[in-house]
Amino acid sequence: MYGLIRGPMVSIAFIVFVFGMIFQLIQFFKLTRKKGWVYPPGEIKFEKKTAGQWVAFCLASLRGTLWRTDPLMMGVTWVFHVFLVGIPIFLLGHNILLDQSWRLSLWSLPESVTDLFSLVVLACIIFFLGRRLFVTRVRVITTVYDYVVLLIAAVPFLTGYLAYHQWFDYDTVITLHILAGEVMLIAIPFTKLGHMLYFFLYRFLIGSEYSFARGARTW
């Protein structure tokens, strides 16, 4: 079992993840078509501003955005998503494994930092869980599936943290950690975790300052 999860399952998970993402990407461009017109470019006049004016300008541009309507959730979700993607990529242990197998590795964060950051990710997940349980407007659209997806995101970090501190039986915990990572990779293209890709793809459809190609595509 340990051999299967550590060996072929890792490759399978990565292949499913990569091909699933490519499939979704192709599907998006197949389903959408180029629009006959694009939104005109925004007319932004760059004027020289003092530092105080810049701060006022930045604060004013936040007006009406989610940073103003729900700053706590925005802050937490921002930190969560950056760390969720960043920690596994820049983790020392992962990079050592990469170096051993492929002779290439990325820059790594110190272990004490990633250790703290994974706790932050877990805290964010607890915040999301709390929202799902106690905030009415979130609870009305919450299904069991939402909790499962939250669990899929939580388990790799929880087991990773436990494995690093060698709490409980190390072999079991690290196997669970690898399995959880594989489940997450496989789940990304086919569950609502697919917003990882579609967050960016939907920008092709939106004609605003947050878009790609000025909203040049349509369904």
Binding site: F28, L66, T69, D70, R131, R137, D146, K192
Partner: peptide
């Protein structure tokens, strides 16, 4: 409209941040 709508529905994170808009 299955391709479009299924993707809209399944990639909704159920975050409820659309509420205030």
């Amino acid at each position: 409209k299955k391709g479009k709508m299924k993707r809209y529905l399944s990639f909704c994170a159920h975050c409820s941040l659309c509420a205030e808009s």
